[in-house]
């Protein structure tokens, strides 16, 4: 049994909140630069140039890339041989509290969905647990903006709808979203499981580095085909027209019931943030 102190979790979560919000991952930057090189439509080129300029300014000043510094989605892979000294949930929330305060990040969480009074410190975090073998704790902080979150969709397809039904649903979700989720977007797709598991997979798909594909060649092909279809829609960066509507499509799947084909689409903007550290 390995011991991990809650105070180390606080420090790590705090650091990851600030880093994720101010410094875009190299995988996303490379994808944006690649999209710029492949773009020919003038307004689209101009938008992509400004997006590149923006993340460079954020890097330089350690300033938030986007003002929507999101709700803090925190993914924990807890090794089953780890013992936490202290309260794990509270440690994560304290890390978020300190990170959002000391990092000058926006506090965007309201305590009650109807009453809507701001909690003032961006807590609580949305915490997702996975129990895994080993004695490590892997922490991923993925701040999630709601311009893109609001454009996410879920459907319980019929098995007879098959792969064509899935493709139609994903492409329609992106087309309906249009300019709203700040294209070029990243599209997370969850297929199978249950109603809630499909949504969880779609969100988790957004944590995968851009450029990495599903290990199953069939779904790797699906990712490539969906990306091509989406980038033929003409929505383009910010919806002003152009090629780069999406940077990547990441698909995750799992077994499901004989009667069902759940499918979820979780959309992320071009400020596709996630940072990981292993304790």
């Amino acid at each position: 049994m390995r011991e991990i102190n809650a105070c180390d979790i606080v420090k790590t979560v705090k650091k990851l909140c600030i880093e994720a919000n101010c410094h875009l991952g190299e995988d996303v930057k490379n994808c944006i630069k690649c999209a710029r090189e492949n773009e020919t439509w003038e307004t689209a080129c101009d938008v992509l140039d400004k997006i590149i300029e923006n993340y460079n300014i954020a890097d330089e000043l350690s300033a938030p890339i986007c003002q929507d510094t999101g709700v803090a989605c925190v993914f924990l892979e807890v090794g089953q041989d780890v013992h936490i000294n202290g309260d794990l949930n509270e440690a994560v929330n304290e890390g978020v509290r300190q990170g959002y305060k000391d990092g000058y990040l926006r506090k965007s969480v309201v305590k009650d969905p109807i009453d809507r009074v701001n909690t003032g410190d961006n807590t609580p975090a949305m915490i997702y647990y996975d129990i895994v073998p080993g004695d490590k704790l892997t922490i991923t902080v993925a701040p999630k903006g709601f311009g893109s979150e609001n454009m996410s969709r879920i459907v319980m397809l019929r098995p007879s709808d098959g792969i064509e039904g899935v493709k139609r649903f994903v492409i329609n979700a992106v087309e309906e979203a249009g300019p709203n989720p700040c294209p070029p977007i990243v599209v997370g797709v969850g297929i199978g499981g249950t109603f809630d598991k499909a949504a969880y997979m779609a969100k988790k798909a957004l944590l995968r580095d851009l450029g990495e594909h599903n290990e199953n060649p069939y779904y790797e092909e699906l990712e490539k085909e969906l990306l091509q279809s989406i980038n033929s829609l003409g929505i383009g960066p910010q919806g002003f027209g152009g090629k780069a509507t999406a940077l990547a499509v990441n698909v995750e799947t799992m077994p499901t019931h004989i009667a069902g084909l759940p499918c979820a689409v979780n959309i992320n903007c071009h400020v596709a943030r996630h940072k990981t550290e292993v304790l």
Binding site: I51, N54, I57, P64, I65, C66, Q67, C182, V271
Partner: peptide, 13 residues
Amino acid sequence: FAAIGGAGALLSS
């Protein structure tokens, strides 16, 4: 008008 969504650091200047 639309400003560029996600370009908060640039627009701030």
